[in-house]
């Protein structure tokens, strides 16, 4: 009963983690091998994939006999796979660039906005982009330097690889190795709980997630970016600067199943899914034009 070797078997947290990795690999291998009457393959951004996964589930439920395979691998894989015909549709967490417009056609299915959050008791109402950069580089480390209390700033950053981090760094022209963080968080909820529990914290999370938690009474507030209020409305109308469109891309004008699925993903039938994942829905009439507007 007390042989030390047992610790290897009883240490369940790590064992489950590794087993989970093994099995998920096995499952991926199996799912890509099975066939159905009609099949649609989407690959690309890890930001878009969970959303499309949920949309695909609903689409499959409404259209028996159709199977939709969603795989992640980053926006660049989405474009590459769509271009080589390995996937019917690519998923990217940005708009199409001007030089990509010739080869691809983009369809925006939702938008994602990132807002700066502070504790509700923090008297600071706005900070400039330059101040954000200085704070994240560690050159400014006290709130009184930006018009707040006499207190040290707790800088909350996101873990490596998250697309929220990428968008944040890109907008503020930072390298992650320059950031002097006090706390590194995983998902939005952890970020919101961290800021809600620390009156001196500054963090950034998905605006949809922050608005939901504020409505639930969480003591945080969203700060404007570049004088534009951080709300789902400003994200939706495109005026909020720290946002991006989640886009489906195809190489040829969509037909048949591909077209039907894109229409479904842009329709109001999936707006509840979009909101549940903390993204901002766009109406389908706007989608095509916004795709062009954000191509820069």
């Amino acid at each position: 009963m007390t042989h030390p070797f047992q610790s290897l078997f009883l240490n369940s947290t790590r064992r489950n983690l590794l087993l989970g990795m093994g099995f998920s690999l096995l499952l991926t291998a199996c799912s890509s091998g099975s066939s159905a009457d009609q099949k649609l393959t989407l690959t690309g951004s890890s930001t878009v994939a969970p959303l499309i996964g949920e949309i695909a589930k609903r689409y499959e439920a409404e259209n028996p006999g159709i199977r939709i395979d969603v795989q992640t691998g980053g926006s660049s894989r989405g474009l590459a796979d769509a271009s080589q015909g390995l996937a019917d549709i690519g998923m990217i967490s940005r708009g199409l660039k001007a030089e990509e417009e010739g080869e691809f056609q983009g369809f925006v299915i939702a938008k994602d906005g990132i807002g700066l959050i502070v504790h509700g008791d923090n008297p600071v109402q706005a900070i400039s982009d330059q101040q954000v950069v200085d704070i994240y580089k560690g050159e400014v480390d006290a709130w009184q330097a930006v018009g707040g209390n006499n207190a040290p700033i707790t800088v909350v950053n996101k873990a490596e690889g998250r697309s929220t981090l990428e968008l944040f760094l890109k907008y503020f022209e930072l390298e992650n190795s320059e950031v002097q963080a006090d706390v590194v968080i995983g998902d939005n909820q952890q970020g919101i709980k961290t800021v809600a529990g620390n009156p001196n914290a500054l963090g950034y999370v998905s605006i949809g997630a922050a608005e939901y938690d504020i409505a639930q009474g969480s003591p945080i507030k969203l700060l404007p970016v570049d004088k534009i209020a951080a709300t789902t409305e400003t994200v939706q109308d495109g005026s909020f600067p720290l946002s991006r469109p989640l886009t489906l891309v195809v190489t040829e004008p969509p037909m048949g199943l591909t077209q039907d699925f894109i229409n479904f993903a842009q329709s109001e039938q999936v707006h509840d899914i979009v909101r549940a994942q903390n993204f901002v829905p766009v109406s389908s009439s706007l989608a095509q034009t916004q795709s062009e507007a954000t191509a820069n």
Partner: peptide, 14 residues
């Protein structure tokens, strides 16, 4: 043995 088990759990806790 108890201490070894506990240390193993501590190392693996996520």
């Amino acid at each position: 043995t108890g201490v070894v088990l506990a240390t193993g759990r501590a190392l693996g806790e996520t």
